[in-house]
């Protein structure tokens, strides 16, 4: 596997290190000379000092052989350009980009970037999950919200406590992913009994999610 990373900071260093440890070939492109010199001392990777949104630097990084490119700069237009150039001129099969402005997710997607890391959105979601006091949390929405992964903590008074999964009256469009009981992860079967303080991960269609929460928490 050959990966090109454009960007800087600790994140690029650790990512590159991680990929190298897995045996991947890594090239890093960065505009800052000192950063490149420093990185070259620490990593057994191809380090290129230059502008990753330019053809010649991508060529130096052997872009036509690369399997993936990661655009991780703090400038969204640069990241978009890097991914598009990689795709159109070098036919790199997989493009990954960080976006800084969360509104750009839709734009990047429509303009052909394969995988987008919406860091602002991710961080704010994580914070909301930690700060959230309710027993019900949306963990992840998949495929632009067509599928949701959520967590429900079973508190005292929940009507499902002590019941087996097969006894629950759940809509068909709900899948039990797993039950987290203390430190233990239980892969649920029909015979699994639900206990107080279990964290239940469910996969649902958004339109049936509320129904699932009602069944599990007993609230209407």
């Amino acid at each position: 596997m050959e990966i090109i990373i454009v960007g800087g900071g600790k994140i690029v260093y650790f990512l590159a290190k991680n990929f190298l440890a897995k045996g991947y070939q890594v090239s890093v492109i960065n505009k800052d000379q000192d950063y490149c010199i420093n990185l070259a001392k620490k990593l057994n990777a191809v380090i290129i000092h230059g502008d990753g949104s330019k053809l010649n630097y991508l060529e130096q990084a052997r872009a036509s052989r690369a399997d993936a490119i990661l655009a991780l700069t703090d400038n969204d237009p640069d990241n978009l350009y890097i991914c598009q150039l990689a795709q159109r001129e070098f036919e790199i099969p997989k493009t990954f980009s960080v976006i800084n402005n969360p509104d750009n997710e839709e734009i990047f997607k429509n303009l052909g970037v394969d995988t987008i890391f919406n860091t602002t959105k991710l961080i704010s979601l994580l914070i909301e999950q930690r700060v959230e006091t309710t027993d019900v949390n949306n963990l992840l929405s998949i495929e632009e919200g067509r599928l949701n992964l959520s967590q429900v903590i079973l508190k005292e008074g929940s009507p499902v406590l002590g019941k087996k999964l097969k006894e629950l009256n759940l809509p068909d469009e709900i899948v039990f992913g797993c039950v987290i009981r203390g430190e233990e992860v239980v892969i649920p079967k029909g015979s699994t009994k639900l206990l107080e303080n279990d964290k239940v991960l469910i996969i649902t269609l958004p339109q049936r999610q509320a129904e699932a929460f009602d069944v599990l928490t007993g609230e209407e």
Binding site: D76, P77, Q84
Partner: peptide, 8 residues
């Protein structure tokens, strides 16, 4: 004055 901004 930024080509990448213009492209976007």
């Amino acid at each position: 004055d930024d080509d990448n901004v213009n492209a976007m």
